[in-house]
Design a protein around this nucleic acid. Structure first.
Lengths: 130, 130, 130, 130
DNA sequence: GTGGTCTAGACCACT
DNA sequence: GTGGTCTAGACCACG
């Protein structure tokens, strides 16, 4: 998978990487069980400090997106089985509330929003794992 | 309108305030032409420094959400007429891509997403301004 | 002459009024010797504090645009005979330098600028006084 | 590039700095892609508070003059590509109207104005970027 | 009383 | 070491 970074973005680099990995999983570009490059490898590839990559991997591990094996390195969690608990749903809802408040005021209708999200969902794979 | 701040949140205070004001406009709690409290007043009300409030107002002014009168203070832009240009649409799309990638992987279906967004839109007023 | 104020502008009200009076003289809408409304009259007409109007008149007097007679009120200086001294030329030059630096970077050519200024000059009367 | 501040001027310090940076770009003293000093560095150099410099940089960023990298600090936007939209042209025109009204009344002719502006344009670089 | 400007200093996130 | 956030307090311009 190819990572593209926007160094001038407000979004921290580690966040950009994390986002792209999670999106990559959703889109099937990264399969559960698949290995990710080593911290130093990835850092060298995209030309950033390896601490930054390390931070990403640690957070991904924390949130169960990946597992870190001592020998085989970092792999996408083969048992990927995250659930949307109440806390997650609430945070998602409030994020969307803010996001679509502005979208609505800028003239984006419910229909457009539905269509947009439908298109996005079509880029995701149906069955993620097991 | 009542503002509630999460002081322990990672989201900067000024961002929280800004979000709530924009959401407030979308939900009709704040009407175009309506006055906002003065920087010092609002700061005192919610117990923060007036510079933080000032930062919010300055950004809202920059983005045309409000108009700052030298005499009467800050009011919601009565000619609120923002448009969704290409830049905005792209940033919205990529934000949603990331957001729903995780949602999808957590088992939230397209139907659920549609329903969620429909509910959110129902909280917004139909006609914002002319 | 009709004054139009932009209350939401960054430009102070007193400055807007002053600008319009000077522009009015240049365009012949206000003739040397012509009387201006009284401070209270003008303030009432445009709905602002009379201190603001007073400030304008005092500055105009200071800069010799008007003379204030005890009985006949404020009139445009009939002997209007301002000269562009070195100080004035320097300040004009440096103002224009900044202004056209941005214009240039936004793609406005020298020819366009010439044309623009020519048009503006055409709105002025040829002979101002005596 | 050397910045010179007039502390006793009515023009706010941050505005003076901003003006000089934009003029510097137009005159080629600052090249697109070139780095500006860090907020604290510049502040120390010219003996002012770093918040004041920060304000300048934030505004320049908002108006797309510069790009702020999280790593390498602030650089002149390498893709400097500002356009003169209708709003800008109108504000420029009305500024010039006021400016030249006084100039005209002080005896500065159209020819002199043309010459002045031509000289100013000659201090700018021809091709700004790409 | 309103916002605008400037200073000063602290703490934090990111790289 | 870089910018980002927040607090605090002072003085000024405007109306």
């Amino acid at each position: 998978m190819l990572l593209t970074l926007a160094f001038e973005s407000e979004t921290p680099l580690y966040q950009q990487i994390k986002n792209q990995i999670i999106t990559g999983i959703a889109q099937g570009k990264l399969q559960p069980g698949e290995a990710l490059p080593s911290v130093r490898q990835l850092a060298a590839d995209i030309g950033i400090n390896f601490h930054t990559v390390n931070k990403v991997y640690q957070q991904l591990k924390q949130e169960n997106w990946v597992v870190i094996h001592r020998r085989s390195g970092v792999i996408i969690n083969p048992e990927l089985n995250l659930k949307a608990d109440e806390v997650y749903r609430e945070s998602l809802t409030s994020t969307l509330e803010v996001l679509f408040a502005e979208a609505h005021l800028r003239g984006i209708t419910l229909e457009e929003s539905h269509h947009l999200i439908k298109t996005i969902y079509q880029s995701y794979v149906q069955e993620v794992s097991k």
